[in-house]
């Protein structure tokens, strides 16, 4: 514990950097996945190639992606943009399918009622389909958030500044304290992300609270 308090500044600055590297791609990834998921739902022939194709990106091991990407982007490995892009790719990989399935989970008769009442396609998406897909998309976001926090720590091997550097600090000095602090900080950050998503989801889904989950 004394080690933790002596290095509080480090923990906070690396923690913030970690949150930035894992969190920003979550938002960008969601913004990219929304139109892609919508397309996959709108045009049936796109569903299989989109969900399978983007899903396949998730199979690329993160260390490999961190090393390969700079070659394509023309930036140094240690550039934070490298990690941001990689994490965005993973987020999109997870969310395209989630968004498509979430939009697809809107009951048919509800969609039809909306159409029959004269919603235009765009209005219907924002007023009906998207709000109703929030619970499913949120579940996907929670998986992506926790997964992102864990994956970012792999950047340690390449020397990228984030909480994982405590792992190598401890390992290289044969010293458990920083190692445990690093792991605990990663878990706390993951739980924080999870909590933020849960709170946002509750704010966006008042009807689920009122009905105890039925809807």
């Amino acid at each position: 514990m004394t080690w933790f308090f002596d290095h509080l500044d480090d923990v906070l600055s690396r923690g913030l950097q970690h949150a930035y590297l894992a969190g920003v791609p979550l938002v960008i990834g969601l913004l990219i996945a929304l139109p892609l998921g919508w397309l996959a739902r709108r045009y049936k022939f796109l569903y299989a190639p989109f969900t399978a194709g983007f899903g396949l990106l998730y199979t690329i091991p993160s260390l490999a992606l961190f090393v390969i990407l700079p070659g394509f982007l023309g930036i140094p490995i240690l550039d934070p943009v490298n990690v941001l892009v990689a994490m965005t790719i993973y987020t999109v990989a997870l969310l395209v399918r989630t968004v498509a399935d979430g939009l697809g989970a809107v009951p048919d008769h509800v969609q039809q009622a909306a159409t029959a009442m004269g919603y235009t396609r765009v209005k219907r998406f924002f007023a009906i389909e998207l709000p109703l897909a929030v619970p499913v998309i949120s579940a996907g976001m929670r998986v992506a958030a926790v997964s992102n926090v864990s994956i970012v720590s792999v950047g340690t091997i390449l020397g990228i500044n984030q909480l994982g550097l405590f792992f190598s600090d401890g390992f290289n000095r044969d010293f458990y304290d920083p190692l445990f602090v690093g792991i605990a900080a990663c878990i706390v950050l993951a739980l924080l992300f999870d909590a933020v998503i849960i709170v946002l989801t509750r704010l966006f889904t008042p009807w689920l609270r009122a009905t105890g989950g039925r809807a």
Partner: peptide, 8 residues
């Protein structure tokens, strides 16, 4: 048939 009410 099922009213098609908007659940949200």
């Amino acid at each position: 048939q099922h009213a098609g009410l908007f659940p949200h």
